[in-house]
């Protein structure tokens, strides 16, 4: 995580989710997982945020709100889809009002599956997103137009996962159990 030189702030929005992933997003900020020690703050203002955490499968009425929040965020920005509903619609995919995933509305950088997504998985997803954020930032500074996300992401993946492990000392045992299950 050496590339994280600034405090990444997150904005969270519930795009038609069942609450399960939302309370897990909040649980990441609580003393048990405590991502605030890395300077990650949950802000209510999209204009202050670097990372956009979206949960839920996004319905017709929510699609404009999700798009507005995304457009209000300054560049560079990263979108993390939290939970299986946000990834592709999940159990509600067949419902008539559901668009089926966040990527039907805005571009998504990271997908975190799970029902509900576990806090460890969400932290992993955000850490991976921070690598992409850094790549985007460098691309902006260098004046490059196209961001080679496909090339950058795997390169960031390995150090990101290594870095995530010591970050979750207290949660390591639970993480192993979760992996087996």
């Amino acid at each position: 995580m050496a590339y994280v030189t600034k405090s990444p702030w997150v904005v969270h929005y519930d795009g038609s989710s069942c609450n399960g992933c939302d309370i897990e997003v909040l649980a990441c900020l609580m003393p048990m997982y405590d991502v605030e020690r890395f300077g990650i703050i949950n802000t209510g203002n999209p204009k202050h945020a670097d990372v956009f955490l979206v949960t839920g499968s996004v319905n017709e009425q929510n699609k404009d709100v999700v798009r507005q929040i995304y457009e209000q965020m300054p560049e560079p920005k990263v979108v993390v889809a939290v939970g299986i509903c946000a990834c592709h619609g999940g159990v509600f995919r067949d419902a008539y009002n559901i668009l089926g995933g966040v990527d039907t509305v805005i571009p998504v950088d990271c997908y975190v599956p799970g029902c509900a997504a576990r806090p460890e998985a969400i932290i992993d997803g955000v850490v991976k997103g921070l690598g992409i954020l850094q790549a985007k930032r460098e691309a902006m500074v260098n004046g490059a137009k196209a961001i080679p996300a496909e090339e950058e992401a795997p390169a960031e993946e390995a150090p990101a996962e290594e870095a995530a492990a010591p970050a979750e000392e207290t949660a390591e045992e639970i993480k192993e159990e979760g992996g087996e299950a």
């Binding site: 038609s16 499968s57 929510n62 419902a95």
Partner: peptide, 25 residues
């Protein structure tokens, strides 16, 4: 209306055992 998913209508697509999972969510 921001979280309306229309899951009561899903009874047409999920059988009664699966419906328990839907209602749980």
């Amino acid at each position: 209306g921001y979280i309306h998913r229309g899951l009561e209508k899903l009874v047409e697509k999920k059988d009664y055992n699966q419906m328990v999972y839907v209602v749980e969510r």
